[in-house]
Design a protein around this nucleic acid. Structure first.
Length: 106
DNA sequence: TAAATGACAAGTG
DNA sequence: CCACTTGCCATTT
């Protein structure tokens, strides 16, 4: 478990209900702007062992990125339950729901 | 130790 | 805006 991975976990845990974050954004805050794929691996590994709001993580298009149909529906259901709205293309309005975290200042 | 993997992102047409 | 290609890099085999 590297510091980087721990950061990813902490960041995901910090996402408030009703908001979402993209993989790239999380990787960026964790210190590796190009490690979006490592965020994916973290979710695969620790999502069920830790109490993480993994459902608040979507891709840069504002869409759910789970290939498995059941998982996809589950995530969408949980997000809807938090008040997040999906458009006719099953996409989230990132301008409204994206959680703008700060890197260090401002 | 080397090669493959992956719930992605950004660039191009 | 949509579809396809290329780059990425920690973790897993």
């Amino acid at each position: 478990m590297t510091k980087f991975t721990e950061s990813i976990i902490e960041i995901i845990k910090s996402i408030p209900a009703g908001s979402v974050m993209t993989y790239g954004q999380i990787a960026d805050l964790a210190g590796n702007p190009r490690a979006a794929r490592q965020v994916v691996r973290v979710l695969h590994s620790i999502s069920d062992k830790y109490d993480l709001p993994w459902h608040r993580v979507v891709n840069s298009k504002g869409q759910i990125a789970i290939p498995d149909h059941q998982g996809y529906v589950m995530q969408k259901t949980m997000l809807l339950d938090e008040g997040i709205v999906f458009d006719e293309n099953d996409r989230i309005d990132l301008e409204k729901y994206l959680y703008k975290a700060r890197q260090s200042d401002e």
